[in-house]
């Protein structure tokens, strides 16, 4: 009996040790970013580096946010990401519902097309997309960036949403249809409310993807006042003076809202992803 307990503890010890190591490795870059952003210059550039800041300071955050353009980056990112989320969600819920619940000619082909575009990497769409948006006069505008982000996220969100619609019992829909023809009204009043958790979590995922996008935004946006956070942040390093404290502060401020948002929805997201992306 006692032996068993010790054995059990021993087993658990290994488990906790492994978890601890994993957590340390996974957490290291983020924790180091936060710690660095709290260190004054003297401590940042001291060798060998100390783990914890001796005299923590918020000076880098103050300096960063004193710069009105940084506040603007946040607003820009917010506008672009939420607009992308909205446009994407409107198109994707309709599409996913259609693919999940209807049969018509060409459905399979469309499924394949969407799945293929899901694999299609942004860099390969970059050059033509850039030219098309330029021809439409949409380069260097929020709309251009929003369209680009929607292009990259739409296949993903349609694919993620399908299982949520599939999960709704068919009988429920049929009962609603009893009295009349299938219509948009039934979709919006009966089906949609049932899928809100799925739509919200997918929408927030789209928001996150758009918030994190760098390549297309960096190519399309010209003026400093229109830059999104990722582009602004990346420019901190390509400039001629590298201010590590400020970079770490802005990096932290860019990451934290996203991590918080993700934590809020990750349960639903996991559900959708494990049902949708890969079915082994």
């Amino acid at each position: 009996m006692r032996n068993n307990i010790i054995k059990h503890m021993g087993k658990n010890l290994w488990f906790y040790l492994l978890v601890l190591v994993t957590v340390c490795i996974v957490g290291f870059p983020l924790i180091w970013m936060v710690l660095s952003s709290l260190k004054p210059s003297v401590e940042l550039f001291k060798m060998p580096p100390k783990i914890l800041p001796k005299q923590p300071t918020l000076i880098w955050y103050q300096n960063t946010f004193k710069d009105s353009v940084v506040v603007r980056y946040f607003l820009n990112s917010f506008v672009v990401s939420s607009s992308t989320m909205i446009i994407d969600m409107i198109i994707a819920t309709l599409g996913a519902y259609s693919l999940a619940r209807f049969t018509y000619r060409g459905r399979r082909l469309i499924m394949m097309a969407i799945l293929s575009s899901y694999c299609l990497p942004p860099i390969m769409l970059m050059i033509p997309l850039y030219r098309i948006l330029a021809a439409l006069g949409l380069n260097s505008s929020y709309m251009g960036v929003i369209i680009g982000h929607t292009t990259f996220t739409l296949p993903f969100s349609v694919w993620l949403l399908i299982p949520f619609f599939q999960k709704i019992p068919k009988e429920m829909e049929e009962a609603a249809i009893m009295d009349g023809a299938p219509s948009f009204k039934i979709f919006s009043t009966i089906i949609l409310p049932l899928c809100i958790p799925g739509i919200l979590s997918t929408g927030i995922m789209v928001f996150i993807l758009s918030w994190n996008e760098y390549l297309l935004s960096s190519v399309l946006i010209i003026s400093d006042t229109m830059k999104t956070l990722t582009v602004g942040l990346a420019n901190y390093i390509s400039s001629t003076e590298i201010d590590w404290g400020a970079i770490m502060a802005l990096g932290t401020s860019t990451t934290i809202p996203i991590v918080l948002m993700f934590s809020a929805i990750q349960k639903h997201f996991v559900e959708g992803l494990t049902a949708g992306a890969v079915k082994g």
Binding site: V219, D224, S239
Partner: peptide
């Protein structure tokens, strides 16, 4: 006044030229 960082000057100029902007 629009500030453009030195690093991506040519990308931006090309973008502007292409769009007639």
């Amino acid at each position: 006044m629009v500030t453009i960082s030195f690093g991506d000057m040519y990308t931006k100029l090309a973008t502007a030229v292409e769009a007639g902007n």
